[in-house]
């Protein structure tokens, strides 16, 4: 096995490393969360990494979206990200898709993936992805940020609550969301950790446990989230 992974093989084993190499992960949005998550997934040796986004890089992204640099402004995010990820790890096949995820294309864009990583900036698309994850029984790692706070929960359909159990209704959320750049750094990193654990079978994913990172007070909270027996998305599985 490549020396590139020597520091982690003692943790996940040769077998775990092979599982990563044979795995397919999709990162749904390559902004603050997705930049960090995809960086660590490529670095860890995930064999196939699909990255999906439809935005172009703007200057206001650069405080947190670390795969995009000043000379990328105006470039499609997936193009900017794919270039850096390919340079980081040529052993990872990067598949950039410049599209917006919708109810019409979600099956086509996410099918066949072993793990789905949340890199979205709105709840509506997250719910579309959650429904796909539940009906196709795929693990989905939810991450979200606000200011200096971050939230993370891993959804393994049938084994714990889904995102709709957590948020039964979507309120109108303001468009401008303040974010300290390090916050999606923390949560994106945790999302990648969850994906690596799911793929290798090492450790215990945060299923039914909402992790709340409070950067202002530098603390982590863990909240038990039960399945909602009335949840119209996952009650039948």
């Amino acid at each position: 096995m490549s020396e590139r992974y020597s520091r982690q093989i003692s943790i996940i084993g040769e077998e775990g490393q092979k599982k990563l190499r044979n795995s397919k992960v999709v990162v749904t949005g390559i902004g603050g969360l997705g930049s960090v998550a995809s960086y660590y997934l490529a670095a860890a040796g995930v064999g196939y990494l699909r990255i999906i986004d439809y935005d172009v890089v703007e200057i206001s992204n650069l405080n947190r979206q670390i795969l995009h640099w000043t000379n990328d402004i105006g470039r499609p995010k997936v193009e900017s990200a794919a270039m850096k990820l390919s340079l980081l790890n040529p052993e990872t096949r990067i598949d950039p898709i410049n599209e917006k995820i919708s109810e019409d294309n979600v099956d086509e864009l996410l099918k066949g993936m072993d793990v789905i990583i949340d890199g979205q900036d709105n709840l509506r698309t997250r719910m579309i992805i959650n429904e796909f994850a539940v009906r196709s029984c795929r693990p989905y790692v939810y991450g979200a940020v606000y200011g200096m706070e971050g939230f993370l929960m891993t959804i393994i359909p049938g084994a714990g609550p889904c995102l709709r159990c957590l948020y039964p209704y979507e309120p109108k959320i303001k468009d401008f969301i303040p974010v300290l750049g390090t916050t999606p750094g923390v949560i994106g990193c945790l999302e990648a950790t969850e994906a690596i654990k799911i793929i290798t079978g090492v450790g215990k994913p945060s299923v039914g446990r909402l992790i709340i990172y409070d950067g202002e007070n530098m603390s982590f909270h863990e909240v038990c989230i039960a399945r909602n027996s009335q949840c119209y998305v996952c009650k039948k599985i």
Binding site: I173, V179, P184
Partner: peptide, 10 residues
């Protein structure tokens, strides 16, 4: 008591 609305930023 902990209170939070849905969080959606990314």
């Amino acid at each position: 008591i902990s209170i939070f609305p849905p969080v959606a930023g990314g």
